[in-house]
Amino acid sequence: MTRAAMINAALFAMLPITAGVALALDEPFIITLATKVAILALAAVGLNIALGLGGLVSLGHAAFFGIGGYAMGILAHHAQSYTPLMELPFLIEGTKSMPVIWLVAIIASALAALAIGALSLRTTGVYFIMITLAFGQMLYYFAISWPAYGGEDGLSIYVRNGFPGLNTLVPIQFFGLCFAVLAVVLWASGRLARSAFGLALTAARQNPERVEAVGLTPYRLRLVAFTISGAVTGLAGALFADLNRFVSPTMFSWQMSGEIMIFIILGGVGRLFGPVAGAALFILLEHLLSGVTEFWLIYVGALLLLVVLFARGGLIGSLAGREVAHD
């Protein structure tokens, strides 16, 4: 086992250990925090497919996070108010079943990512950053001014949605579920990176001309990566909404996009477990510092600056040395 792999394993084990200790000490809020880490890490794992593998710096991933959240909000809202989502041309009812909600969230955010990606990927560099930001803002303003689902007030769901065989209202069970999803997605994303597709994508980032020369289209590779990335972040959005039992347009805000990106940088770009480390560190800091000072964001800012300027591999990079540099 390399040092990086050991660190990854330790990091990954830390979440369930934390949750288990919290359970033993009867501190359900710590379990809630661990759940939040797992979900936000999942969102960042999604972004990391576009950003780490594909080199696509998207400052608009909050769009997919929000779409996933609203997929959950809208379906559960209709289920809890016993009103059909749509009657014509055929009847669609709301639902409170997580697997169905997840599926809808994944499909909706994948379609959105496909559309946004198809347009945005015509640009590169700063233009790409900015056009993804613009799409995010568009959805943000749309969500605020669209009255049907609460506008800026958002939607509250009174009871967490159900999963067959589990009582999701029990914090530790919901944590287990989110953690399992994270584990599956991490495994799949590791496979993806080593697959032919992942290698081609990495090559398209490092040397697009050569990829074209062997007959692949970088645009198409990137579009597929962007779509998968959006779908994963959308799934995380649905889980996040279920964690809070609430959705609102702030899930679409550009600060949200920035935060998801911060998790990746804090952990280390292009590293499979980077997002987990980054999300854990961020939530820990938020939890500890906000109790100490009103101005805790200064310290988060300063830390982030230090990481970007001096610890280029992020948290995992610093711990593991430079044996697995990202480029």
Partner: peptide
């Protein structure tokens, strides 16, 4: 550096400036 580092570092500067001004 690449654009990603620039975005992140200057995002961090926003946090420092905003909360510093409020302070």
């Amino acid at each position: 550096r690449d654009h990603l580092d620039q975005v992140l570092a200057t995002f961090a500067l926003i946090l420092v400036f905003s909360e510093g001004t409020r302070w």
